[in-house]
């Protein structure tokens, strides 16, 4: 069941990304990106990162994508835009992409990809992360979640308090606790960064009205 759902989300993500990359009409490419973002949000849920999934939905699907589509709609001559990706001579591109593929394959199948996992009877089994993903896509992150819960229970005492009631509040509680205690400074710096972004966006995107225009609008009002 979970395998099926995982592959559905993976399929949506990959197909959306492929359409985004391949489609000649930039409007359709931008809309195809919507499916990629939703699919990635689904994959985050499969990886027990529900807070990240919500963030993905809110910021990327609800915000960034709208901005992208606005950006597309602002563009002149959308229909006739001739999108030509010129990345360089074909042999060089081929070698680079094959090299990237080789690196990814090495990361998945190579010896460093295996990590030891202690099974219940005490035996240490070496499991390749790739086989882990193919058997249970979400299981590899379950290991991380358990480790995180252990760290959090050491930090905040009783594990029953930290351990969420079977996903009722998910990771948000843990993230909130860490954000308001250990990572307080980054949290407050985020607000300063957002403030800078706010002012910067206003400064750059808004055309300052000239003195004549200002006088005109004042006389009108």
């Amino acid at each position: 069941m979970f395998d099926l759902i995982f592959y559905i989300f993976a399929f949506i993500t990959v197909v959306g990304a492929a359409v985004t990359a391949i489609h000649r009409n930039i409007v359709y490419a931008a809309f195809a990106l919507l499916f990629t973002f939703v699919g990635v949000a689904g994959l985050y849920v499969m990886a027990n990162a529900d807070f990240l999934a919500v963030t993905q939905m809110m910021v990327y699907v609800g915000g960034i994508l709208i901005l992208l589509i606005f950006g597309v709609m602002l563009t002149n001559r959308i229909q006739s835009a001739n999108i030509v990706v010129n990345a360089g001579p074909k042999p060089v591109v081929a070698i680079l992409s094959l090299g990237l593929l080789a690196i990814l394959c090495a990361a998945f199948f190579g010896p460093s990809a295996t990590h030891s996992e202690k099974s219940k009877d005490g035996k240490t089994a070496s499991v390749s992360s790739w086989s882990n993903y193919t058997q249970q896509p979400w299981a590899a992150t379950q290991w991380n979640k358990d480790a995180n819960e252990r760290i959090l229970s050491e930090k905040f005492g009783a594990p029953s308090e930290v351990k969420t009631k079977e996903g009722s509040s998910g990771t948000s509680v843990e993230i909130g606790k860490l954000l308001l205690s250990d990572y307080l400074l980054p949290f407050e710096i985020v607000s300063i960064v957002l403030l800078v972004a706010l002012i910067g966006a206003t400064m750059i995107a808004r055309k300052e009205p000239t003195l004549e225009e200002e006088a005109l609008s004042e006389s009108l009002s």
């Binding site: 919500v54 509040s169 909130g176 949290f187």
Partner: peptide, 14 residues
């Protein structure tokens, strides 16, 4: 929007 994202973890733990 990003500000709201930061409100979520705060709201469940404050």
């Amino acid at each position: 929007d990003i500000e709201i994202v930061f409100l979520y973890p705060w709201a469940v733990t404050f």
